[in-house]
């Protein structure tokens, strides 16, 4: 059986639902020796800003149980070097590129997106409104629905490319944030970014991360991510979703699709195994073949929930 792996996230068409997450896949080119970049559904590149950014002083990372904390601070080469040095090579390799962007202010976000414009080598723009590791910008927008709405609305006219908004899980209600982003003009939602965490060296009584707190990623966050995907899918059934959070195996990919994601992004797992994303594309095709699933898109949002019981006092 030939399995149709293609998925459509609104106007964003991907050859398969396996993408890679921003901040864990560099500019894609670093992985060329481990993965056929053109075989992936998409590559979300390291978050780009209007000017190059140095990032935070070390220590920037530490391992935690089933995951890691990071506070890199959005170190990146800046949009100009990305467009002149990285993007042509990615395009040459047949990569489907998501340009992940951020800024300290609404004007900076808009400037980066305007610079990308309608560049045909970019498949979509992904707004990072959820980085917990910078003093300004990032999560400031992601935590406030009104600010998020205003930011997305301000950026929306700057490009005709599909606009993806990557949401922060560090909110009371993910659906409120999702609605604010969609009302502002988001075509697709990515969820989730990292969860704010803290790890302490008990000998020195210092935080293990220089920024004090960091973003938790890896398998530890997968159930939280999955729950948020499911909630947003229920509340906004027509809005396409990239599911992100601790995905390492084909079973994890399937969980996210069933919960309601249309595609997934592989994050921290690429640090552990640089070839994992390419392998998951093949394994997903094999799984569908073995299970008689002709179109992978048909799996999306097929969770069979049981009715929750009424209160049962004795």
């Amino acid at each position: 059986m030939t399995v149709d792996l293609s998925v459509h996230l609104g106007r964003l068409q991907l050859k398969n639902p396996i993408a890679t997450a921003s901040g864990t896949f560099g500019y894609g080119l670093e992985f060329a020796g481990f993965v056929d970049l053109g075989s992936l559904g998409a590559i979300s590149v390291k978050g780009l800003s209007a000017r190059p950014c140095l990032g935070n002083p070390p220590p920037r990372i530490c391992e935690t149980d089933a995951g890691m904390l990071n506070a890199i601070g959005l170190q990146n080469v800046g949009i100009e070097e990305f467009l002149s040095e990285k993007l042509p090579k990615l395009h040459e390799k047949g990569a489907t590129v998501l340009a992940n962007v951020w800024g300290d202010t609404e004007a900076e976000y808009r400037a980066v997106v305007e610079r990308i414009g309608d560049d045909p080598r970019v498949a979509a723009v992904e707004l990072n409104v959820s980085c917990p590791n910078v003093v300004k910008g990032g999560m400031v927008f992601g935590n406030d629905p009104a600010a998020l709405h205003a930011l997305v609305a301000a950026v929306r006219p700057a490009t005709r490319l599909p606009l993806v908004v990557k949401l922060s899980p560090n909110v009371t209600d993910i659906v409120t944030a999702a609605k604010a982003a969609v009302d502002g003009g988001a075509d697709v939602l990515s969820l989730i970014n990292t969860l704010v965490g803290l790890s302490i060296d008990v000998e020195t009584r210092e935080p293990k991360i220089g920024f004090t707190t960091g973003g938790l990623s890896g398998p530890a966050i997968r159930p939280v991510a999955l729950r948020m995907v499911w909630e947003v899918r229920k509340a906004l059934p027509g809005v396409p979703i990239f599911g992100i959070g601790g995905i390492e195996t084909v079973e994890h990919v399937l969980e996210f699709l069933i919960a309601g994601a249309n595609a997934v992004q592989i994050g921290t797992a690429s640090f552990r195994d640089p070839g994992v994303s390419g392998r998951l594309v093949r394994e997903l095709a094999d799984w569908c073949d073995r299970h008689g699933v002709a179109r992978v898109a048909d799996l999306s949002g097929t969770l069979k929930t049981r009715p929750r019981p009424e209160k049962t006092y004795v």
Partner: peptide, 21 residues
């Protein structure tokens, strides 16, 4: 301390005299 070993996680930086990491 590094997560990837090949220039992607940017976790292993040390401060340089040139102001970069």
């Amino acid at each position: 301390e590094m997560a990837c070993g090949f220039g992607v996680c940017l976790g292993c930086v040390l401060p340089g005299r040139d102001g970069r990491f």
